[in-house]
Design a protein around this nucleic acid. Structure first.
Lengths: 222, 222
DNA sequence: AAAAATATTTTGACATATCAAAACTAAAAT
DNA sequence: ATTTTAGTTTTGATATGTCAAAATATTTTT
């Protein structure tokens, strides 16, 4: 039952694909899973079949894969470890939020339950990581927050950035430089459909215009 | 060149066997290596041969194995990571020195150079870990300290425990309970060859008698 | 020096995780 | 309703790391 780090990565990828989908019960297509993990599709098929054998996923040939309850719980534990480690690296180790992802990716498979609880305690049982991603509790329960993104939120209203749905280091550095990190106050001042852009005013009265693709990755609260 | 954690464990085991030997140039017998790693001898033979191919070790059939310069440097880096992680877990995470070994064993393969340097810096570039084991510097250089053990040190002389050559959790808890941790002041009050024992007076005026096997694992300075 | 005991290596097998490329299925387009 | 296309599965190989057990080498005992 000692889940390998490869299996943990598959679980995490399936979990995140399911979370990103509108229909949470939808099957994740094998091609999507394979490309998320950087393997060829045939490899994903093979792995998923062995995971069926361990009771972690349900699999429909030519349709896709979905986590079972057991798989979902394990996936939540991987995510819990990953996010607690990220927050730990930023808060305690003083690392930049843009550079901790790769470290956390490795450490999430190496930290024991004992250590992860120590970290959780040291950080004061936090609810979210530096990107605003929710940290599953030890039972695997995830607090669901309903955010709007910069394409669906009201214009000319005071907002607070709450979550960033993109771990790309360059993007994160960009957000940092323009005062768009989670917790910072902003306002959408204009949206231009034909220019495919959104203009934002940050708390420091800086103005930036970003594309809608990027804007959809920034979640806010009013 | 991305050394697997298995290879790292082989390097570490060979390094430690070489350090423990009187003749530092001596070959480590395959049987010793295999049992240190918990594999059958044939497995060690196979692995060592592939490590010869990577230039990490020199191997003499039926005699044993020894690290090359490249292997020794890599082994020192593994040990550096392990020992810094142990000290970090004790000093920063508040874990008990008796329980950190297994965690460190996992983490030593998962911490990046960047993170290990951060830890090193946070701890103030320490020279030794919680067991008194020296921490190799980033170039792989290890400060050599000449300690005596409780069998070779003078009797009725003020001593300070400097190093413990045994990671067994029960033994470490025993030392903790009897005030025999590195840094603590003690005195050997009697040695009895026929009883195979050594009697010690700790700083708190506690008296304990331990076997010579255990006594040889406790290193001291005068 | 031969026999016995010990240590080491070889051989064949297996588990995990992967790829390339061929075979196949399902959906979309004509 | 075929054909085309896109996505998926299968097949055969490969790399890593392991074991069991047979074969071999070395050392010790007698």
């Amino acid at each position: 039952m000692a889940t390998s780090s490869t299996v943990e990565n598959y679980l995490k990828a399936i979990y995140q694909a399911q979370s990103a989908a509108e229909d949470k019960q939808a099957l994740v297509p094998m091609g999507h899973l394979a490309s998320a993990l950087g393997v060829v599709p045939g490899t994903a098929t093979t792995m998923v079949k062995t995971m069926v054998g361990s009771g972690l996923v349900a699999y429909e040939p030519y349709s896709g894969v979905r986590l079972t309850e057991a798989g979902e719980h394990l996936a939540a534990m991987v995510l819990r470890r990953h996010r607690l480690v990220e927050l730990f690296l930023v808060q305690i180790m003083g690392m930049s939020w843009a550079e901790v992802h790769e470290d956390a990716e490795q450490l999430e498979h190496a930290v024991s339950d004992r250590l992860i609880d120590r970290i959780d305690q040291l950080l004061g049982r936090p609810a979210v990581d530096p990107h605003g991603d929710p940290i599953p509790d030890p039972e695997g329960i995830v607090a669901q927050h309903l955010h709007k993104n910069l394409l669906t939120c009201p214009v000319d209203t005071d907002l607070v950035v709450t979550r960033v749905l993109n771990q790309d280091a360059d993007f994160l550095r960009f957000l940092e430089q323009h005062e768009l990190k989670p917790g910072q106050a902003i306002k959408v001042i204009a949206r231009d459909a034909s220019a495919d852009s959104v203009s934002i005013l940050s708390s420091g009265n800086h103005q930036v215009t970003i594309g809608t693709r990027a804007a959809s990755k920034l979640l806010v609260e009013i």
